[in-house]
């Protein structure tokens, strides 16, 4: 490198002259490292280290008091026979398959409804978004109250149609459905806002041109809006899948509303891992499960980047 000069020259430069290039570069690099260091170290400590550590701890049987015994791959073998685990995988899968498409259609519907001006449209948007501002714990408690068996507001309102004695959280065949519905209510305003951002970027002229050519509302949506909204839709869908499997919604709501019950019918994977660790003190097994989920996340991210050629959602 020709620009690297003898450090001694810095001392000999005449007063007032510009500092040599190497000096400036080094100062800039030093400042760069110093500015990035706190965040980088924090991320390594509280995100990177846990991810690596989960792999290490999976090979041990760890009790709640810091005692570790090496067990090799036993924790992973245990998974195959763990029927409760497979039950929770099933719960997460059904939850995702229901929440993602229904939630998307609802959010898109709302976004189209409030895209153009009508009196009070701003307030209407805010009202759709409001549930998302409240914490999931408050949301869980509120819905538990509304869904109290026989006396709750929902039971009272549905009594005329013969659903007054239905237990929406107590019946194993309904509890997961209730969880999906509440999740959609909580997240629809958030996804609506993101889709609204995408819709606003589509030039009005395109639709007007289609209108002049005699296109119906559905044709305008199908052939103008839908293709141009693709990148935003893709983002919302990926976000929703990741959120359903690993998001706070999959834990907080389950914890407050049902504790995974009745009969394990709402026990999501992340809730099951929490229970293994903090109810049964099986830290090693919980770490092994974490490793599998991290593996899933890496695979999902990789697939996503592969499919979209490096995150360019509009390509292809």
């Amino acid at each position: 490198m020709t620009t690297v000069a003898d450090p001694g020259t810095a001392v000999r430069r005449p007063p007032g002259a510009a500092p040599p290039v190497w000096n400036r570069r080094r100062r800039e690099a030093l400042a760069g490292y110093a500015f990035v260091a706190p965040d980088l170290l924090g991320l390594m400590m509280f995100v990177g280290l846990p991810m690596v550590l989960s792999l290490g701890v999976s090979l041990f049987s760890a009790d709640g008091f810091g005692g570790y015994t090496y067990v090799g791959l036993d924790n992973f073998r245990q998974m195959a026979e763990d029927t409760q685990l497979w039950q929770s995988v099933r719960v997460t899968l059904i939850y995702t398959l229901a929440f993602v498409p229904i939630g998307f259609v609802v959010s898109l519907g709302l976004a189209l409804l409030v895209r153009d001006h009508f009196p009070g449209v701003g307030l209407v948007r805010t009202m759709f978004f409001l549930p998302h501002v409240i914490s999931l714990v408050v949301v869980g408690i509120a819905w538990q109250f509304l869904l109290v068996d026989k006396q709750g507001a929902v039971a009272t309102l549905l009594r005329p149609v013969g659903l007054g004695d239905t237990s929406f959280l107590g019946d194993p065949s309904l509890a997961l459905g209730s969880l999906v519905a509440i999740s959609i209510w909580f997240l629809m305003g958030y996804n609506m806002l993101i889709l609204l951002g995408g819709l606003k970027d589509i030039p009005k002229e395109y639709e007007e041109a289609a209108g002049i050519d005699g296109a119906t509302s559905w044709q305008k949506f199908r052939h103008v809006i839908w293709p141009l909204l693709r990148p935003t839709s893709f983002f919302v869908l990926v976000n929703s899948v990741v959120g359903s499997v690993t998001g706070l919604q999959a834990f907080d709501l389950v914890y407050v509303l049902t504790q995974g019950g009745p009969a394990g019918s709402t026990s999501s994977v992340v809730f099951y891992i929490y229970q293994q660790a903090f109810t049964f003190n099986n830290y090693g097994y919980a770490a092994a499960l974490t490793t599998v989920v991290v593996g899933f996340l890496i695979a999902a991210t990789g697939t996503m980047f592969g499919l979209t050629k490096g995150g360019r959602f509009d390509a292809g």
Binding site: L43, P50, L53, S54, G247, F278, A286, A287, V293, L297
Partner: peptide, 24 residues
């Protein structure tokens, strides 16, 4: 490289790393 490392943690959520984070 540092930027890529930071971005690669974007999808990692708390429920996923909860148990090892607790141990740390």
């Amino acid at each position: 490289v540092i930027f890529s490392m930071i971005v690669s943690t974007l999808l990692v959520s708390l429920p996923v790393i909860l148990v090892p984070l607790f141990l740390v």
